[in-house]
Nucleic acid binder design. Structure first.
Lengths: 137, 137
DNA sequence: TGTTTTATGCAACATTGTTTCATTTGGTAA
DNA sequence: TTACCAAATGAAACAATGTTGCATAAAACA
């Protein structure tokens, strides 16, 4: 798994550093979207500013995307490979569990094709589901 | 318009106070969803804690609902009358303008009927559109 | 009017987001 | 391998937002 973390960094032409590799490993081993706080919990010790910038860089470079879940916290999830710099293409739905607060990507559910109101220019659409996840039911 | 603000308070069995009436007036005169910061800007002077609690109370009582727009800030919009205490029923889409940052309710666009993944229990669904609004085009 | 209940305002604090700057490290070319 | 340059890191500091406790003020109601 460490190998694929380094692969991802190489693919996106990002420098290989310990923090970045570890952050990617955490994402690779997680089925749900993670907040910065979630990620910090996986580290023994990490500078939160570095982590903040790591996530920001990853998001800009198309490595991770924001998982909009209607919750308070900003969460990220790994992009599936269709994303590139400044051109995210993660139009799948996200499921937010009201019990445990976790957010899951639902890869096979895509946002519906909708038409923006007249005069509006649509660029992206998100579909957010809320309820109770399989483990909390 | 002050009359209807007081009407709303009465309907929800909330005490009529100056701050609450004024907050409702602001919502009644606004076509877009408002963050706490937006609301503060309409006041000459207001205690931000009071405002925070006013919004929280309104949300709990079904007067306003959170407008999930995928942006950083939490925004609220007036409920249309189908909401009650702890039972929000605002399943219309929200449009977030990337230019001006404003969020509009699209009353006539409803979230699609979706089926949660097996094992998951769906309670609500949100549809968020992003792009450029009519005035920013 | 007086009593009870609730809202307000203030203080204080936690969390998150963000920038600046000096230092360290990774990548690369000599 | 070494040396250099660009980029990443870590520390400090600050802004904005979210949140609670408590004393006081105001609303609701008898």
């Amino acid at each position: 798994m460490t190998a694929s973390a380094l692969d991802i960094l190489a693919q996106h032409k990002l420098r290989k550093t310990a923090v970045r590799a570890q952050v990617l490993d955490i994402f690779l081993n997680s089925r749900e979207a993670l907040s910065q706080n979630d990620i910090e919990a996986h580290f023994n010790q990490v500078d939160r500013i570095t982590l903040y910038r790591t996530l920001k860089t990853f998001e800009e470079k198309g490595v991770i995307h924001k998982a909009i879940d209607g919750g308070e916290k900003l969460k990220y999830a790994l992009c599936l490979g269709h994303c590139s710099e400044h051109a995210h293409d993660d139009h799948h739905a996200h499921f937010h569990c009201d019990q445990c607060g976790k957010t899951f990507c639902i890869e096979n559910m895509h946002t519906p094709v909708v038409q923006a109101p007249s005069g509006y220019l649509l660029s992206e659409a998100y579909l957010v589901l809320k309820g109770t996840c399989a483990t909390c039911v």
